[in-house]
């Protein structure tokens, strides 16, 4: 499944980039994030309770950031699994100044497998987009709070 979108963050590119790779910020902003720990170079251990509506599962795995080019872009690989299935994704996140603010563009590919793949297929794309909307919305809040 292809996933792409743009979001505006109320902070400079440099500040936004810092927020995006800060495990503490990400842990706060990622919907349902129970744990996000920097393990080694660009690799984060993650535990999330994610879901939409009544469908909810606990997932563990890792997020890997690579090709990090502050403050312009990085590549993110997500690989998490739980009893309701697994999610594997990879994508490129790009940042561009938009006046005082930053426009984030992301483009990637997501694979969903296991029990959640076979049911609720109609929700996958919207759920993925909802979660990115929530993530970047929270980062935007965080950015605006820290700026102002």
């Amino acid at each position: 499944m292809k996933l792409s979108g743009t979001h505006t963050i109320g902070a400079t590119v440099e500040r936004t980039f810092e927020l995006l790779i800060d495990p503490e910020v990400l842990a706060r902003c990622m919907p349902g994030c129970d744990k996000l720990e920097h393990r080694d170079d660009g690799v984060y251990d993650m535990a999330v309770s994610a879901g939409i509506g009544p469908v909810r599962g606990k997932y563990t795995g890792r997020v890997t950031l690579s090709d990090i080019q502050p403050p312009e872009r990085y590549t993110m690989v997500v690989d998490i699994k739980g009893t309701t299935g697994f999610v594997k994704g990879q994508g490129v996140v790009e940042l561009a100044p938009e006046g005082e603010h930053t426009q984030i563009t992301f483009e990637g590919d997501v694979q969903i497998g296991g029990p959640i793949a076979a049911v609720g297929q109609r929700m996958h794309a919207s759920a993925a987009r909802l979660m990115t909307r929530q993530l970047f919305g929270a980062i935007d809040k965080e950015a605006r709070a820290s700026e102002g």
């Binding site: 499944m1 694979q111 969903i112 497998g113 793949a117 076979a118 049911v119 609720g120 297929q121 109609r122």
Partner: peptide, 14 residues
């Protein structure tokens, strides 16, 4: 089946 081989019509919802 999607590109990763997951059956995306695996219930009567789909």
């Amino acid at each position: 089946y999607d590109e990763s081989g997951q059956m995306i019509t695996g219930s009567f919802m789909d």
